[in-house]
Simulated scan of single mutants.
Amino acid sequence: MTSISVAQSRGSFYLALLVAFHVLIIIASNYLVQLPIDLFGFHSTWGAFSFPFIFLATDLTVRLIGKSEARRVIMRAMIPALIVSYIVSVLFHEGRFNGVSALVEFNTFVFRIAFASFAAYVLGQLLDVQVFDRMRRGYVQWWIAPAASSVFGQALDTAAFFSIAFWQSSNPFMAEHWGEIAVVDYVIKLAVSLLLFVPMYGVALSAFIRAMKRRDALSAVA
């Protein structure tokens, strides 16, 4: 599988679409991380199942339109994601709708989660881009780059998020269990990424390449 160049107009459209996708997943994950679950006796959150989508999108971005464009997506997504994540998390704090009036009072607990997500997203995604780009240049096998970037990127993302959001938190449950939840969260995200999203990456990449080749062939005939 090789990198495919896209037209400037198409590239701009894909970048805008990816930014919107990143913001959407961050918002969803910030909401879902407030909902704890028990898995085989271990504490985790529903956010562990949503956030790996971002790594899939980032890896496809690096492969298809390059490392610099992937970084542009991250830079464009981080501030809108921080703002909208705070608003959504306040409105739906602890999984229930609290009404628009909840926005009148600044919620430090929710803002801490939103800021932790912001910091973790930037750190984890930039590391993911760097590891993925280096691995794809050094190895022929298509799956090595997304697998390696998931291992390292999600480790940094998880550690940054839970330590910033919940260390000495005002939430007694999260303050006591954040370390355990972080480890379980990382294991779940890594398992989901390696067993589901890496194969999805391969399928999606093949589909994108075939579609681009067909478009190029039609353009050449026209």
Rank of each mutant, 00 (worst) to 15 (best):
W142L: 13
A81H: 05
G41P: 04
W142K: 10
S101Q: 15
L56A: 13
A16K: 03
Q130D: 12
G41A: 07
L56C: 11
L103A: 00
Y121H: 08
G179D: 11
A120F: 04
V187T: 11
L17R: 06
K67D: 06
G153A: 07
V140S: 14
V131E: 02
K213Q: 11
V73Q: 07
Y121K: 01
R214F: 07
S50F: 06
V221F: 02
A7F: 01
L103V: 00
Y121T: 02
T58V: 11
A222G: 14
I26E: 01
L190S: 13
A222E: 14
F111V: 09
V131A: 07
T45Y: 04
I54R: 05
L156W: 14
F152H: 05
F55D: 04
D185K: 02
L39C: 09
D185T: 09
A147S: 15
D185E: 08
A182K: 08
W167L: 09
W143Y: 14
Y14F: 13
S101M: 15
V104I: 15
F132M: 08
D133M: 09
R137K: 15
F173H: 03
F132V: 05
W143H: 11
G138L: 14
R63V: 05
F132E: 07
L103R: 00
S163P: 11
V6K: 08
F51E: 00
D185C: 05
D185F: 12
I25S: 03
S5Y: 05
H177D: 07
L196K: 00
N30V: 04
S85H: 01
A165Q: 14
W167M: 09
T61H: 06
A159Q: 01
I54V: 15
L56S: 09
Y186P: 06
S9M: 04
F109P: 01
L24R: 02
F118N: 03
S163V: 14
P146A: 09
I188C: 02
A7D: 13
S9I: 03
F197L: 15
T61V: 12
I144A: 12
Q141N: 13
L60I: 14
I54E: 03
L194T: 01
A207F: 11
Y186H: 08
V110Y: 07
S29R: 05
Y31K: 00
Q130T: 13
M200S: 08
L156V: 15
R137Y: 14
L91Q: 02
M78V: 10
A207Q: 10
F162V: 01
S169Q: 10
S170L: 11
V221Y: 02
T158G: 07
V203F: 07
A155C: 11
V100M: 08
R134L: 10
W178I: 03
S193V: 08
F111A: 14
R214K: 12
G99Y: 05
F115N: 01
